[in-house]
Simulated assay, not measured.
Amino acid sequence: MNDKYIYLDNASSSKMDESVLEEMKTYFFDVYAVATSDFGYSLGVEAREALESSREIIASSLGASAKEFIFTSGSAESNNMALKGVADALGDKKGKHIIISKIEDFPVLNSAKYLEKQGFEVTYLDVDEYGIVDPKDLKAKITPETILVSIQHANQEIGTIQDIEAIGKVCKEKKVLFHTDATHTFTRVPLDVKKVHVDLISVSAHTIHGPNGVGGIYIRKGTPIKKWLDGGFQEFNMRGGVENVAGAVGFAKAVELVTDEENKRLQNIRDHLIDRILAEVPQTVLNGHRSKRIPQNANITFEYVEGESITLHLDMRGFAVSTGSSCFSRTLEASHVILAATGDSERAHGSIRFTFGRFNTIEDADSVADAIGNVVENLRKISPLGMK
């Protein structure tokens, strides 16, 4: 194993920046009270002020008002809240039809499946070979019963960025609510609600070197949605439960730390790895769009080898990568994303995702490129799939 363990699975979760932790410490040990109203005791008021200041920072990064941003436990909760909250608000009033893409992440996919069991009709949109939704196809699938379209900003596995501006225009024209899961684009790809018509946006801290267990949802003012997690009257009475003040503070700090310069650096590392692997390792193919992709993602299929085997062998050499999305590490199922895009189960099984973060370098890309060439060569020699 390498002396330095190289972590290249930042889409699953990223290492917390030390300055984020420093910002949070006060709200663990000093200002630890529940964020009470302005009529509460001083420690609670101080916690409330920190919560609201953090809300303002995160909302502003989306071009939104602070009152339009709700803190949650992460993007999974945010996605559940978007689909189930809108369904509860509009299902009996307008209709019970929802549209999502076939390559959404599991919180959206499984929320949609849940709603199907409650009597809703769900249309699953096809994608092209790069994982892109056709806005014309979306427009054709919208009916008078459609209440919500949920299309991710960028895919969690192959990194393809959707044209949510065009999708938003279709939804606005058809007077249908539009939700996007921006977990993997937030602060990495520009997204301004003043410029793009979108009604709900899910975001999370864990992919941008913030704390795990905190995220949020932007809800455009006037959007019909019902509270789905009962408890107290927190978060403008949209979510029950004591606020995670330390998490919110850490989330806000993480947002402030991301820069355009960093995103360009990640893109350079990504492109360097893609170029090396495609040039040096035979029988490889890039998954997702070459240019319309988030700066931190590279997803490559190595033909005639199982992705699980590559992952295990790279781990023994000191590298952390994933096969498909992070959720597939416990199963042998093929990636639903690559299957939807290509229809090729072998391509799906042989895929490896590399996702970079703040603490990765160009040397990390070179190291894993050197290692994977050897790993794949050795695995192909014993592969039952055969090498053409």
Rank of each mutant, 00 (worst) to 15 (best):
220 R>L: 09
220 R>A: 12
220 R>V: 05
221 K>W: 11
222 G>M: 08
223 T>H: 07
223 T>M: 03
223 T>A: 06
224 P>C: 11
224 P>I: 10
224 P>M: 07
224 P>A: 11
224 P>D: 13
225 I>H: 03
225 I>F: 04
226 K>C: 06
226 K>P: 08
226 K>Y: 10
226 K>A: 11
226 K>G: 08
227 K>L: 08
227 K>C: 12
227 K>I: 04
227 K>V: 06
227 K>A: 09
228 W>G: 15
228 W>A: 15
228 W>M: 15
228 W>V: 15
228 W>I: 15
229 L>I: 14
229 L>T: 11
229 L>N: 07
229 L>K: 13
230 D>Y: 11
230 D>W: 12
230 D>N: 14
231 G>K: 09
231 G>F: 08
231 G>M: 10
231 G>H: 07
231 G>V: 04
231 G>Y: 07
231 G>T: 04
232 G>P: 10
232 G>F: 11
232 G>D: 14
233 F>D: 11
233 F>V: 10
233 F>E: 13
233 F>M: 12
233 F>Y: 14
233 F>Q: 14
234 Q>G: 13
234 Q>I: 01
234 Q>K: 12
235 E>P: 01
235 E>Y: 01
235 E>R: 00
235 E>W: 00
236 F>Q: 13
237 N>Y: 10
237 N>I: 08
237 N>E: 13
237 N>L: 06
237 N>V: 10
237 N>G: 04
238 M>I: 01
238 M>H: 03
239 R>V: 00
239 R>G: 01
239 R>Y: 00
239 R>S: 02
239 R>A: 02
240 G>F: 06
240 G>Y: 05
240 G>T: 07
240 G>M: 07
240 G>S: 09
241 G>E: 00
241 G>H: 00
241 G>D: 00
242 V>Y: 01
242 V>H: 03
242 V>W: 00
242 V>S: 04
242 V>F: 03
243 E>S: 12
243 E>H: 13
243 E>V: 13
243 E>Q: 15
244 N>T: 02
244 N>Y: 06
244 N>I: 00
244 N>F: 03
244 N>Q: 12
245 V>N: 04
245 V>I: 15
246 A>E: 04
246 A>Q: 05
246 A>H: 02
246 A>M: 04
246 A>K: 03
247 G>E: 12
247 G>N: 04
247 G>F: 02
247 G>C: 11
248 A>E: 02
248 A>T: 01
248 A>W: 01
248 A>K: 01
248 A>G: 05
248 A>Y: 01
248 A>P: 08
249 V>N: 05
249 V>P: 04
249 V>C: 07
249 V>R: 07
249 V>I: 09
249 V>K: 08
250 G>Q: 06
250 G>R: 05
250 G>P: 02
250 G>A: 12
